[in-house]
Design a protein around this nucleic acid. Structure first.
Length: 481
RNA sequence: GUCCCCAUCGUCUAGUCGGCCUAGGACUCCACCCUUUCAAGGUGGCAACACGGGUUCGAAUCCCGUUGGGGACACCA
């Protein structure tokens, strides 16, 4: 009765890993980990016409980046392989023949044109566009003869004559669908490849999947899958249909409305922890007010029963907030290394470790992305060549130049050249000159950075170092007069 | 069009089997505090139970309907 928990994430390589797919994978992963189960990754590559080169690699690397590791599947091995459906074709063919023998499936020789015309007719009359079963009337002998002759055909599922199919969904409860609206779905295409419906059921059974956690778009076809399990005589898994991720226009999140590939977010500099945390909260929450969850914490707290029923809009602003939160929390060492790479890309390579450490310490709570550090504070890496006009106007007074000249020698002797000592120096000079500290601080900041905002002046000067500060002050004195 | 799903602030949501909700938190926005600046942080504010019927002493919570939104209707997944 109680089989060991096994779940799967089964993307098709028709594009890059979608953020919605990431959430589906995440929920599957959490469910498996929380229940001592196995998380299987299976590639559903049964549509040769839509295969996108590089998609499999993108799916794999995106999942790895996010920290969602599969126990079985491409790159991980496993007892239930192969994990590419294109390598399991024999299984589907055998299964479909068994279905034909038991009378639950039948060959159909209708061509696309006839099918299309038929649907148009039904649509015009306001009826559902299901197959009219023209080929169901064929005798078994005739069908076999035509198949043997190599005539192009598909195999269709024969929907039984019963009032309805019921599915007990883990997030939606009981859902009933009238059988009469179910279509005689194609199971095997004329090219010998299975459709999703067949391959999915055959593989989930073969791989002993106990819980199918997937997007809500599959809910309407779930009854067909249930029927398939019954016709095969297999125990069906439990189903959990997840609410959709929506774009700002409230329609299913798609390429048209926003960036949807996980790799896009990665490229923009979002942290995997932030994306995972954000996406986890689109349809689930712990029931209290906590919001920052590591992957390990999600595993510990995730309950499939707490998954919401309604779709959630992918709110980029909130994602930014999560990223900023993680910017402040993540270990500085990682940020330093990543900053080093970004700087090297901009031609600012070979920078001292302790210097980068000082920068990160000062900038981490002021930015959302690492790349913002050189953007917002280029003066850490190069002397300012011009001075922000509005700040000059507001902060550079007639007496500023004299004040800076006055503090220059004191800064030259300030020992050690650290925040506390620099502050003491500035305070003393301000007192001596009979002005407020601010009259010294703002011109100093302008001279050292060229801008009006940024980290605390003393801290920033300490990081820049005495030599750099003095040089910059000299130069400002020349230019600003 | 047919079928299915959904319905609390602009957004993500809390609201366990109806009373503790004059509906809580977070994002965004605004104000104030902190402060040399910019942030971060703190405090406060704006802002919602789609509508109509029931059931009940009592409903955001249960039932029905309406409306709205979404999804599915392929030899795509």
């Amino acid at each position: 009765m109680n089989r060991p928990v096994r779940v799967r994430f089964a993307p098709s390589p028709t594009g890059f890993l979608h953020v919605g797919g990431l959430r589906t994978a995440l929920y599957n992963y959490c469910f498996a980990r929380a229940n001592g189960g196995r998380f299987v990754l299976r590639i559903e590559d049964t549509d040769r016409t839509r295969f996108v080169p590089g998609a499999v690699e993108d799916i794999l690397s995106s999942l790895q980046w996010a920290g969602i590791a599969h126990d079985e599947g491409p790159g991980a091995g496993g007892e239930y392989g192969p994990y590419f459906q294109s390598e399991r074709l024999d299984l589907y063919r055998e299964a479909v023949e068994a279905l034909i023998r038991s009378g639950h499936a039948y060959p159909c020789f209708c061509n696309e044109d006839r099918l299309h015309a038929m649907r148009e007719q039904l649509k015009k009359r306001g009826l559902s566009t299901k197959y009219d079963r023209a080929c169901l009337g064929l005798s078994r002998d005739e069908a076999e003869t035509r198949r043997a002759a190599g005539e192009a055909h598909v195999i269709r599922l024969r929907i039984p004559d019963e009032p309805f199919v019921r599915i007990d969904d883990l997030v939606r409860g009981e859902v009933e669908i009238a059988s009469e609206i179910l279509d005689d779905q194609v199971l095997l295409k004329s090219d010998g490849f299975p459709t999703y419906h067949l391959a999915n059921v055959v593989d989930d059974h073969a791989m002993e999947i106990t819980h199918v956690i997937r997007g809500e778009e599959w809910l309407p076809s779930a009854p067909k899958h249930l029927l398939l399990y019954r016709f095969f005589g297999w125990e069906a898994p439990r189903f959990a249909h997840l609410p959709l991720l929506l774009g700002t226009d409230r329609s299913k999140l798609s390429k048209r409305q926003a960036e949807v590939a996980v790799s896009d977010y990665r490229r923009h500099g979002f942290f995997p922890e932030a994306l995972v945390n954000f996406v986890a909260f689109l349809g689930w929450n712990p029931g209290d007010e906590r919001e920052i969850f590591s992957l390990a914490e999600l595993v510990r707290e995730f309950r499939i029963e707490r998954v919401n029923k309604s779709g959630a809009i992918f709110n980029l602003e909130k994602l930014h907030w999560f990223n900023q939160q993680y910017m402040q929390r993540r270990p500085a060492e990682r940020t330093i290394q990543e900053l080093r790479v970004i700087l090297a890309d901009r031609g600012w390579g070979g920078i001292d470790e302790s210097y980068l450490s000082g920068i990160v310490e000062l900038m981490r709570e002021r930015v959302t992305f690492i790349a913002e550090i050189p953007e917002r504070a280029p003066w850490f890496f190069v002397d300012p060549t011009e001075y922000e006009e509005a700040t000059v106007k507001k902060r550079w007074k007639k007496e500023s130049a004299a004040l800076l000249r006055g503090i220059l020698p004191a800064l030259g002797e300030c020992e050690p050249f650290e925040a506390a000592a620099i502050e003491a120096t500035v305070t003393r000079c301000a007192e001596t000159a009979g002005v407020g500290k601010a009259d010294l601080i703002h011109p100093l900041r302008l001279a050292c950075t060229g801008v009006g905002g940024g980290p605390g002046l003393y801290e920033l000067m300490a990081v820049l170092g005495r030599e750099t500060c003095l040089r910059r002050i000299d130069r400002a004195l020349e230019i600003l007069v």
